[in-house]
């Protein structure tokens, strides 16, 4: 991982080698403004994360002495914790849904709304609104839409005699929730992509248009490749969101009865009265390992790019 004195080659055109010479003032500025976030990150994020990894090999209720138990927690999680495997499955379904449906939809809206059209601001606002809602509103909206006996969806479908149990039926509630999740995620992706589209040099598009490309061609051949870093960003965010997914199911029924997710299991065990911190930390480590698969893929990507 050590990045040895590689030439700081500009990405676009390799030109004469630039020698970075920082003045003492530059070094002071960098030391301060890089130092603070790095210290915070190490002390408040990585320190506790490593502590959690260590705790995952122990049994601890947050109060009495910490007792080392080796791999017991892991063994218990995979063999003696019924919600675990459903949670893993749900997280992967989540990832698939966000990656295949919600994220592309967000990109699509961003591209549509980046054009010079009337009411663009209104459309953007409508799609973005769900992002700002707090947990309490999300929980209420889920109840209001999906309640079996009093909800709007069953009423609108006219299913009052034989209502569908959108939240209570564990075979369908994951999909009910994913609709709400998509509803929020689309606005989020749209916003980030809109900002990315702003950086595309309009002359590129004009040139493509002069060459006779239609809008779709322009987007896929010119804009999309030019936004490669932003595309990667959106991809990574989708992965993060899918693996960390928590709040919507938690607001609905605390992530039970068919809505289990890894982060909910972690929370159930760590946060709350009389916790099983070692056990919860072990679930977190498993989640971290799953994340690592994606990090490594990303890393390879980054370094391949470097070498090129």
């Amino acid at each position: 991982m050590t990045i040895t004195a590689r030439p700081p080659a500009p990405r676009t055109t390799p030109r004469r080698r630039r020698v970075i010479r920082f003045t003492p003032r530059d070094i002071a500025v960098i030391g301060l403004l890089l130092g603070i976030p790095v210290v915070l990150d190490v002390a408040l994020i990585w320190g506790p994360t490593l502590a959690s990894v260590a705790l995952s090999f122990t049994s601890w209720n947050g109060v009495t002495d910490i007792k080392p138990v080796g791999l017991d927690n892991y063994h218990n999680i995979v063999s003696n914790y019924p919600p675990f495997w459903p949670a893993v499955r749900h997280n992967l379904v989540w990832l698939l849904f966000l990656g295949v449906v919600a994220t592309p939809l967000g990109l699509f809206f961003a591209v549509l709304l980046d054009k010079q059209i009337r009411f663009s601001r209104f459309y953007q606002t409508a799609i973005y609104l769900p992002v700002v809602l707090s947990l309490a509103v999300i929980g209420f909206i889920a109840q209001l839409l999906y309640s079996r006996d009093y909800g709007a969806v069953n009423a609108a479908l006219g299913r009052t005699d034989n209502p569908i149990d959108w939240i209570g039926d564990p075979s369908i509630n994951l999909w009910s929730v994913l609709v709400l999740v998509g509803w929020r995620h689309v606005g989020y992706v749209m916003l980030l992509y809109l900002a990315g589209l702003k950086a595309v040099d309009p002359s590129l598009k004009e040139a493509a248009a002069i060459d006779g490309a239609n809008e779709a061609q322009t987007f896929f051949r010119v804009v999309f490749p030019a936004l490669r870093p932003v595309n990667i960003l959106i991809l990574v965010i989708t992965v993060i969101e899918a693996l960390r997914a928590f709040d919507v199911v938690y607001a609905i029924n605390r992530g039970r009865n068919g809505l289990e997710l890894l982060s909910v299991l972690i929370t159930d065990n760590i946060v709350g009265e009389a916790s099983r911190i070692g056990f919860g930390s072990a679930i977190a480590v498993i989640l971290l390992l799953i994340s690592l698969i994606f990090i490594v893929t990303y890393l390879l990507q980054v370094f391949r790019e470097d070498r090129a």
Binding site: S147, R148, D149, D165, G168, N257
Partner: peptide
Amino acid sequence: SGANGRTWQEAAQS
């Protein structure tokens, strides 16, 4: 039926 999708308040409402 469908108890797991119903809040206690909705059940009380019935």
